[in-house]
Amino acid sequence: MYTQALNSSDGEERHIEDAERAAQFQARIDAEERIEPNDWMPAAYRKTLTRQISQHAHSEIVGMLPEGNWITRAPSLRRKAALLAKVQDECGHGLYLYAAAETLGSSREELVDLMLAGKAKYSSIFNYPTLTWADIGTIGWLVDGAAIMNQIPLCRCSYGPYARAMIRVCKEESFHQRQGFEIMLTLCRGTDEQKAMAQDALNRWWWPVLMMFGPPDQVSQHSDTSTKWKIKRFSNDELRQKFVDATVPQAQFLGLSIPDPGMKQNEAGNWEYSAIDWEEFKQVLAGNGPCNRDRLAARRKAHDDGAWVREAAVAYAEKRRQRSTLQAAE
């Protein structure tokens, strides 16, 4: 009885302390202070960020696949060098992000295993195929353009390691978008066939790119708390609108038409787009997009094929360690 009573009062105290700590935590967020790895944080904040940062990391890694598809077929050495550098950057971005996620207490290996097991998501956009060279231009111009729109506010995210990773990522991404636009411009100034290829790529990518910003505000399940915690600074619809407004004049410059005949500019100057097919988004997220199975299979194969390298590196480090222990003993 006595012990039990002690236990329960202990529990209550902890609960009160947590409520107090949660209030202090929120006050720090409201004062625009950054939260660092060893600071106290609510369990839900940790969980939300681990999910978001690791999914962001998986997206960078899986995002190498659609573009990697064209490295050996790039039309010139200049394009090939740029595409190689871009794909290498995506790998680097994945690694900065895994490192940021790890500061919250999960190891990179655990997070990667979850992705390989199909238990963690990555951006739906990478489940679409890259059918022609114009797709590489469109990915740089629109997919990276949309990613930058999403990532710039994340540079001011309340969690320090995530914000710092995003600053590096954003600096590097701007080259990605510009090289994509340059590919599109070259195609649009080329032969009729090349221009048709650019238009076809835009037609296929436009709607999936708009879906990258996530579900509309009225149904987004993570938004409220993320906004309160200053992980998220703008809503999905706000960012989507910003992206559309920035992109329409670029498409006009290229002489391409956006595959949305109902699109019109309102008095405020914003471009109003037609309804997005959220059923398609749901299907792709659920694993039924055109390339979901391919992408996961490619990641699993790369992971399995690299197993011997990881094992050899561990064995070598262990051998060196034993040798130096032996020498020290002599």
Partner: peptide, 23 residues
């Protein structure tokens, strides 16, 4: 500038070059 995974110091240095000094 950040962190990385590697089994030994030599590999850590090489990975640091690739991850953190591409520009």
């Amino acid at each position: 500038v950040g962190s990385l995974h590697a089994t030994d110091a030599t590999l850590a240095l090489q990975a640091a070059r690739d991850i953190y000094t591409r520009r």
